[in-house]
C-alpha cells in the first residue's frame, strides 16, 4: 500500500523566545503571517499580508549598492544620491536584493517553515516552560488562516506536553475552531468593539461572528481570556469599555478580561514594509486605570498590561 506523506508548510514571520506577555509563564511565540483584518493600529503590520514582503530599514543601509545591481526592476533609488528609497510599485518581490544585502537593511518578512522546523525552535525552551507553566503561543497575523498548520503544530506540542495557547481574532467558522480546540490549553481572543459599524470601519470585518464564537467558546470548557486593545480615539473611553466588560461578565467563564495599552511600534514597522500607519499618540496610565476601574464594576477579573487590577 502506498503511504502518502503531506508536509505541511506554514508562512511564519517571527519566532520569539522568552515572551512573558503572551500567556502564562515563559513562552515562545510563533507569529503566523497573514490576517483577514486590517486594524489601523496594528502593532504587527508585517503580519497582515499573506505573502512574504520586503522590509527595508534605511538606518542599517551602508550604501554598498549591491541591491541596485541585482534589481531587474530598478526599484531601488537614491534621492539626490543620498537617501536610499524603494519604489514599491516597481518591486515584484523577487527578494534578490535581500539576498544580496548583509547589513540587515533589506530582509524578507515571512519564511516558509515545516512543522519540524517550528517545533524544534519551540522545543528549545522546554525546561523553562516546565518551571513556569509556560509553553507555546500561536499568534500573528491570524493563526486560523493557516488552520491546518496550526492544528499540526498544536498536536506536536500537546504530544510533547508543552502548554499551548492561541491568540486569534475569532473570525473563522466555529467548525474550524472545533478542530484545534482539543489541542489548545488557552485561547486569547480580542473584542475590539461591541459597536458593529465601528468595528467594521476600523478592522474591515463585522463583529457578529466574533461575538457568536465567543459564546460558543464560553461553553466549550476551554480556558479563555478576552482582551481589548485600548486605542486613542477608538476604544479609550468608558462608553467603549463598559459594554465589552458587561458582555464578558455575561459569559461567566472567562478567566479574565485584559486591557492592553496602544503600542505605536507598528508605525515604524509599517513604513519599513511600504505601508503607512498613523501614530495615534498614547494612552495615559490614568486613562488605563479609569477603564480598568470601569471594567472591575462588572464583577470580572481585570488585568491591565499584564498586571491584575484588584477591585
Amino acid at each position: 500500500m502506498l503511504e502518502v506523506y503531506i508536509i505541511v508548510i506554514g508562512l511564519i514571520f517571527d519566532i520569539e523566545r522568552f515572551s512573558t506577555k503572551d500567556g502564562p509563564g515563559i513562552r515562545t511565540v510563533v507569529f503566523f503571517k497573514g490576517c483577514n483584518m486590517n486594524c489601523y493600529w496594528c502593532h504587527n503590520p508585517e503580519g497582515i499580508s499573506r505573502a512574504p514582503e520586503l522590509k527595508f530599514d534605511a538606518k542599517k543601509c551602508i550604501g554598498c549598492m549591491a541591491c541596485f545591481r541585482v534589481c531587474k526592476n530598478h526599484a531601488h533609488r537614491t534621492d539626490d544620491d543620498i537617501v536610499h528609497t524603494i519604489n514599491r510599485s516597481a518591486c515584484t518581490r523577487c527578494f534578490s536584493c535581500a539576498d544580496a544585502c548583509f547589513s540587515g537593511a533589506l530582509e524578507v518578512v515571512g519564511r516558509k517553515m515545516t512543522i519540524d522546523g517550528v517545533f524544534a525552535a519551540v522545543a528549545e525552551d522546554t525546561a523553562f516552560y516546565e518551571q513556569t507553566n509556560g509553553g507555546v503561543t500561536l499568534s500573528g497575523g491570524e493563526v486560523m488562516l493557516q488552520a491546518d498548520f496550526a492544528c499540526e503544530l498544536l498536536m506536536r506540542c500537546r504530544e510533547a506536553r508543552i502548554h499551548t495557547a492561541i491568540e486569534t481574532n475569532l473570525t473563522a467558522s466555529w467548525k474550524s475552531y472545533c478542530k484545534i480546540l482539543p489541542y489548545t490549553d488557552l485561547m486569547m481572543v480580542d473584542i475590539k468593539s461591541m459597536d458593529d459599524a465601528a468595528h467594521m470601519a476600523a478592522t474591515g470585518i463585522s463583529n457578529k461572528r466574533i461575538l457568536e464564537n465567543i459564546r460558543f467558546l464560553a461553553s466549550s470548557g476551554v480556558p479563555f481570556i478576552v482582551r481589548t486593545p485600548v486605542i486613542p480615539g477608538f476604544s479609550d473611553r468608558v462608553e467603549n469599555i463598559g459594554p465589552i466588560a458587561a458582555f464578558v461578565s455575561s459569559l461567566k467563564t472567562a478567566r479574565y478580561y485584559e486591557l492592553l495599552s496602544y503600542n505605536p511600534l507598528g508605525v515604524s514597522k509599517a513604513e519599513m514594509i511600504g505601508r503607512s500607519q498613523k501614530n495615534l499618540g498614547s494612552v495615559t496610565r490614568e486613562t488605563m486605570k479609569k477603564l480598568a476601574d470601569c471594567a472591575n464594576q462588572w464583577n470580572i477579573r481585570v488585568y491591565m498590561d499584564g498586571q491584575h487590577i484588584k477591585q
Binding site: 512573558t20 525546561a127 518551571q131 488585568y303
Partner: peptide
C-alpha cells in the same frame, strides 16, 4: 523593567535561575 513589571516576574526569574543551574 519589562520582565520586572509583569505579574509573575519573580516566578520567571526564578525559572531562569533554577533552569540555568539545572543545566
Amino acid at each position: 523593567p519589562t520582565i520586572i513589571d509583569t505579574e509573575n516576574a519573580i516566578d520567571n526569574i526564578e525559572a531562569i535561575i533554577k533552569t540555568h543551574f539545572n543545566m
